[in-house]
Design a protein around this nucleic acid. Structure first.
Lengths: 147, 147
DNA sequence: GTCTTAGTTAACGTTTACGTAAACGTCAAT
DNA sequence: ATTGACGTTTACGTAAACGTTAACTAAGAC
């Protein structure tokens, strides 16, 4: 689990900005296969350094990966996720580019908020099921809490 | 847009509980193809009445369909959606069944709330991008509002 | 030295969620 | 009687997102 500590354990601030992860470490941590990680690379979602043939993942790569997985959980396709990731690292020097970035961010936020409304409605429906069923059980003299 | 009104427009309550939809109507309304609707039927998600070979969709079928589509937007697979739909129409007479329903509802709610946390985080990140980019544009003397 | 433990590429297989013809039936309107 | 709109089934096709061998290499442990 631990990489040979090269420095003193003085600073409380995680200075492991330099940390490097192997593909196996990341696959364990995120409970996905190495194949999946390599696949994301083929799809242009992550670009780890290489040491010969071996892939070396930086902290940034790790963050990117977790971002990708969250996107997946939210129901975005890999193509959409790639677009969103690219949004972040687009060149922000020109005014035109900034305006485009702003526009697309706003579109994306609107999309997400629609999704959130869907989700809230969905949650409420199930909460209602839950409370109705609980009530029904209590009425029958059963404690809904008992496992 | 309007269907020939067969009754007086007296009651404000939509009494069109009897309404029947064709597959084309539903596909238009929800902006999906008829193929998709038939596919959902093959997968056991909707079961419309038949008049000969032709499918007739009730108001309940319509509701079910919109529920399915919302599930999809939230990133659930059709298999998961089928399970959730089945949750609703399970036999609720026995105590054991009620307890099982309660248990599964609670699991599902927990899952949804995790998803909601993901989504909120995601939204916040993009809001921050938005405000940063807006600030940057203002600093450069550009009005971010102008289209 | 060789054995074990990661790592690699390459290529084919699989599941999900439909798209896309092909080939046909039904009914109203011209 | 034919055209057109709408419906049907059957069946093959496809894109996305990986899983699964297979056939290797490179680095340490013993």
């Amino acid at each position: 689990m631990s990489v040979a500590a090269s420095s003193s354990a003085k600073s409380a601030v995680p200075r492991d900005t330099q940390r490097i992860y192997s593909i196996a470490e990341l696959s364990r941590e995120f409970a996905i296969t190495a194949r999946t990680i390599r696949f994301y690379e083929d799809e242009g979602l992550i670009k780890p350094r290489r040491q010969g043939m071996t892939r070396l993942y930086s902290v940034g790569d790790r963050t990117r990966l977790s971002w990708i997985l969250r996107g997946k959980r939210l129901g975005f396709s890999l193509a959409e996720i790639r677009e969103l990731l690219d949004l972040y690292q687009v060149d922000r020097t020109g005014v035109q580019q900034l305006r485009e970035l702003l526009r697309r961010s706003q579109l994306h936020i609107a999309d997400l908020e629609r999704k959130r409304a869907d989700l809230d409605q969905h949650i409420n429906e199930f909460r209602e099921v839950e409370s109705q069923v609980s009530a029904e059980l209590r009425q029958r003299g059963v404690d809904p809490e008992s496992d």
